[in-house]
Design a protein around this nucleic acid. Structure first.
Lengths: 213, 213
DNA sequence: ACCTGAACACCGTTCAAGT
DNA sequence: ACCTGAACACCGTTCAAGT
């Protein structure tokens, strides 16, 4: 019985395992089993565990549907950021890898270039362009992080939600407690409205550049 | 030979291992060894590996030096965000855990409350306050993420830096390539200037609220 | 009750043997 | 050259025995 794989096949199966069975289920051995081979065969395609995880991040990046530029830099920036966020959100179990592992594959650099290019239409100076790029990218990734591990996140279990609420309400955290009940209600708007805030800030710098330093 | 530990002792030793030897070096067994016990003793204090990692995140949170409020909401917000960023940055090897594991300990909620409280001084509506809270928190965590795994990050090895640069310059990523050389130069200012952008956006919403929706 | 060693079921990877 | 099983050195955790 011979077996030969393409890297894309391996990549897809790996992401599939993560999506279906969770991150801990992704193992050299489980992936090999899914591919109906022995674990060692994988080492002919991938450098090891670390490299495999980068391949999964790359797969998520490949899911980003980079939008066509329209000429409106703010709209384009919003569109790329949203596309990034959607792709990450579509694979929640892979988020820890996306936040943690580095990829420099074309698939992952393409959205970054699209974002930088969109922002470049705003007439920012070189420095401000870099700062704006990092700010937007950080916002997107940070939102993903907040959804994964932040406070004020909607819980999976009802009990843990109640426990957290009571912890917050327990006296010394008045502002957080006041905000906690809004979490579920605003959830879907948070990304968009947060992005609006970030864009408003960038636009301000674009209008009157070099106002600090 | 008897041995009895406080949770704080365990926590501190765990963070110490991560800081000194890196994240992979933190192991039930290595931590037990550092404490001069067998691995099983740890289970009397901690629920397991997952709980131990949350304890490390908690330790990093405890390093946040939450500033005293001054009454200037923007300055206070900046101060809390900066304090958060400094604490995270002081323990780079623990960043993957900070981005990934959830803690609801008082130590980790205190900075969150301080941030929410500072923003609450800006006269934002309840919705906008939550959005602003998430935006600033996301920015801080996202910046930490960018420093860990983003593109345009300064490299540890000189060869990998060169390799990335050449990848970027290889034709199809003009905007990123143009930005890449600024990475090292701006590094220290990026957080502060990005935070300025975010604050400018929040201030705008504070001035004329409910302008969308 | 608290502590902890031995043992189990994993894991990634080396190494050397197959084709 | 490509492939892959056996074996090794780990890991987290169960289980049952000690005090």
């Amino acid at each position: 019985m011979r077996a030969r794989f393409t890297l894309a096949e391996i990549q897809w199966h790996a992401l599939d395992i993560v999506d279906r069975d969770g991150l801990p289920a992704l193992t050299m051995r489980s992936l090999a089993a899914a591919l109906r081979t022995g674990p060692m065969t994988l080492y002919n395609y991938v450098d090891g565990r670390e490299a495999l995880e980068e391949l999964v991040v790359d797969a998520v990046s490949a899911c980003v549907h980079v939008p066509e530029p329209t000429g409106d830099w703010a709209a384009d920036t919003r569109a790329v950021a949203t596309a990034l966020w959607r792709a990450v959100r579509a694979h929640p179990a892979a988020v820890p890898l996306v936040l943690t592992r580095r990829t420099s594959s074309p698939a992952s650099l393409a959205p970054a270039e699209a974002l930088a290019s969109a922002l470049a239409g705003g007439g920012l100076g070189e420095d401000d362009l870099l700062v704006a790029f990092r700010t937007v990218m950080s916002f997107v990734m940070g939102i993903a992080q907040a959804e994964l591990a932040g406070p004020l996140t909607r819980e999976t279990t009802r009990e843990s939600a109640a426990r957290r609420m009571s912890t917050l309400a327990e006296g010394s955290l008045p502002t957080l407690a006041g905000l906690a009940h809004l979490g579920a209600a605003l959830a879907d708007q948070e990304f968009e409205r947060g992005l609006d805030m970030v864009l408003a800030g960038i636009r301000q710098v674009a209008v009157r550049p070099h106002d600090r330093g």
